[in-house]
Simulated assay, not measured.
Amino acid sequence: MESALARRRVTFLRGHYAEWVALLFLLAKGYRPLARRYAAAGGEIDLIMMRGDIIVFVEVKARGLMDNALSAITATKRQRFSRAVRAWLARHPHAQGKTWRADAVFIAPKRWPQHIVSAFELEMF
């Protein structure tokens, strides 16, 4: 039982670390943070960033191998993510005139973060 709890804690801390790495990486690329760890409607958005007139909803994935991170965004994850995006947009009417997209930042040990622009389509309806 303790090993499962310890494993969960390590996974939680790895996720927080990966989100900070992704945030710093995107800041260096000129993005401005709007929100972090936004949860609503049964989904979560790791980072919400803005650059110019584009609002970027970012999924951060940390895995031992980059290939595992790339395959970690499943159809179910995209649906939950899109529900959270719709909830965020409903609470932020100023965002209606902007362009939106879903990016991903993949983190793996001893590798530079990999930022995928428009990594997947948002399900808006």
Rank of each mutant, 00 (worst) to 15 (best):
F106S: 00
L24R: 08
D103K: 01
P33D: 09
V117N: 05
A75T: 11
F120S: 03
G43F: 04
L27V: 14
F120R: 02
V56M: 10
A41R: 08
I73S: 09
V58Y: 06
L89G: 01
A90Q: 09
P113D: 10
W20H: 10
K61A: 12
M66P: 10
A35Q: 14
T74I: 11
L47N: 00
G97T: 02
A119S: 13
L65Q: 13
G15E: 02
K98G: 01
R86N: 08
G42F: 07
P33H: 11
D67M: 15
A69G: 12
A4P: 02
F25N: 08
V56F: 04
A87Q: 01
W100M: 00
R37F: 06
L34Q: 09
R36N: 04
V58T: 13
P113G: 10
A41C: 08
F125V: 15
L24M: 09
A28E: 13
P113C: 12
P93D: 05
F106M: 08
A62C: 11
F25I: 08
T11N: 09
T11P: 02
A22T: 06
K77I: 14
D46T: 01
A28V: 08
V105W: 00
S3W: 11
I116T: 05
A102R: 03
F125T: 15
L65E: 14
S82P: 09
L5Y: 10
L70P: 01
K110R: 08
H115T: 02
A28C: 07
T99K: 09
L70I: 11
G15W: 01
R8Q: 12
L47R: 00
K98H: 04
V10E: 11
A35R: 13
P113I: 11
E19S: 08
D53C: 04
H115W: 05
D67T: 14
F81K: 02
G97K: 00
I107Q: 00
R63K: 15
E44T: 03
R83P: 08
L13S: 12
R9G: 10
T76A: 14
F57Q: 07
A18I: 03
M49K: 04
S118M: 13
R91K: 11
A39E: 15
A102N: 01
A18C: 03
W20I: 06
Q79H: 12
K29M: 15
V105K: 00
A41P: 08
R111Q: 04
K98S: 05
V60F: 07
A104M: 05
R78M: 14
L89M: 09
V117F: 04
H94W: 07
L23F: 12
V60W: 02
R14Q: 09
G52L: 13
D67E: 15
M66T: 10
A102T: 00
E19H: 03
G15K: 07
T11R: 13
L89S: 01
V10D: 11
R80I: 05
A90F: 07
L5M: 15
V60P: 11
K110T: 07
L122G: 06
L70W: 03
S3I: 15
A104N: 05
D103Y: 01
H94C: 00
F57M: 10
